[in-house]
Design a protein around this nucleic acid. Structure first.
Length: 172
DNA sequence: CCAGTGATCAGG
DNA sequence: CTGATCACTGGA
């Protein structure tokens, strides 16, 4: 299979997030085994003006990687328990990322990272060069539905209602 | 419905 | 330094 290259990631998150559906996350574990996971749900977080995006507070130690170029990994801990896996998108200094909410048979961003053994050690990982985590072309582009993002009540009406969550339709 | 759990960040 | 907050999950 073909690894997704830099050009795939350095586009606007509103293009990349839905296009991640039907692609494979590939994880090579320390024991040498490699597994593929089909992406089935993503969310877009877009720029400092997006009141739901962590970059709304500007560049901080945590959000720094989002200011890098597309294709890097943004991982953070939420509620002291769950690691969230995000793919940085867009050009340098355009802080954006796509949250991986679900992979086939595993719904929920915290469950995804638990199954893939992903934590802060992957912060800043380059998906175009890593030997333990990357993305590959997958099945034909699936039909999908867009809806509001989850868990961002704090963002206010304008931003919490944007249909920036993308989910593969049932049969797929 | 709600508690758990700890990194992160704004404010003193 | 302190305290509030949090892109969630699992178990009443």
């Amino acid at each position: 299979m073909q690894r997704l290259n830099r050009n795939f990631f350095t586009r606007d998150v509103l293009i990349v997030a839905p296009q991640l559906l039907g692609k494979y996350i590939v994880r090579r574990f320390s024991d040498g085994t490699t597994r593929h996971y089909l992406i089935t749900e993503t969310e877009a977080y877009r720029g400092e003006e997006d009141k739901a995006c962590h970059a709304r507070k500007g560049k901080t130690p945590r959000t720094r990687v989002m200011y890098g170029e597309g294709g890097l990994v943004y991982v953070y801990l939420v509620y002291g328990i769950h690691w969230m896996l995000n793919i940085v998108t867009g050009d340098e200094n355009h802080p954006q990322a796509a949250l991986i909410r679900s992979i086939k048979n595993i719904e929920g961003p915290g469950r995804v990272t638990r199954h893939l053994y992903i934590d802060k050690a992957f912060y800043g990982e380059d998906l175009t060069g890593s030997t333990r985590l990357w993305l590959e072309e997958g099945i034909r582009p699936p039909h999908y539905t867009a809806g509001p993002r989850i868990g961002i009540e704090y963002a206010g009406d304008k931003w919490k209602n944007k249909p920036w969550r993308f989910k593969t339709d049932k049969p797929d």
